[in-house]
Design a protein around this nucleic acid. Structure first.
Lengths: 109, 109
DNA sequence: TTGACATGCAACCAAATAGTTGCATAATAG
DNA sequence: CTATTATGCAACTATTTGGTTGCATGTCAA
């Protein structure tokens, strides 16, 4: 069973949090202050979002002196896909993937 | 771009709505009343959830006389996976690698 | 036609959410 | 040491969310 499926879904439900994940995806290991730049809200608001992302284990953190580094953790998203989304979509996604491969192969000819 | 990415994520954020999708996945084309059975809430609460699922295009409906039939639609979930979740998964190994490096660095202190 | 059944609509309520501000604490640079 | 920087904590607020109840509408069966 997924430990905190609900936490993951709820964490992903907010566009600000998805944007934070996007930023960590582009550049991993950002500090809180770095994550606050380019976001139109207070540092404390960002902190709260990061707390939820951490609780959902979508982000893991590490202290370096007075800084807190944030790293994206893809495992929960993978689990969501494997155990929940997959049950609806697995066959379809695989079919599309195979189709894409086939078309790519065709390109090479 | 995904038309209503936010609506889909928000629709999936509630456990009652995920359970409704589960039930439609097991047996498609259920009426509102059938969906209300086995759920510990009023018919109107279920209706509201179904409205959100419909708005996110996760469920499509069809009238048959005085009944309303509900069908699961896997397309939005597929899009979420392909365009959003996939981009994290592609980098999964890379991200884990960075995390491992960071933790290792911390060890050296 | 009339009563029962299936769904729709609107007003209301409590709790959760997303945000704010102000102050506290801890680490680093000079 | 002291000032600055980076983060943490707490109280407060407005809005959204998930639920309720009551009544209305539309369809079907007897």
């Amino acid at each position: 069973m997924i430990a905190d499926e609900d936490k993951v879904f709820k964490a992903l439900a907010d566009v600000s949090r998805r944007k934070l994940l996007d930023r960590l995806h582009k550049k991993n290991g950002l500090t809180l202050n770095q994550l606050c730049e380019k976001h139109d809200m207070s540092r404390q608001a960002v902190t709260k979002h990061l707390i939820l992302l951490e609780a959902a284990k979508l982000v893991v953190t590490q202290r370096r002196g007075r800084e807190k580094l944030h790293y994206i953790n893809p495992v929960p998203i993978n689990e969501i896909y494997m155990r929940w989304i997959g049950k609806f979509e697995q066959e379809r996604v695989h079919a599309l993937h195979n189709l894409k491969l086939a078309l790519k192969e065709n390109d090479h000819e």
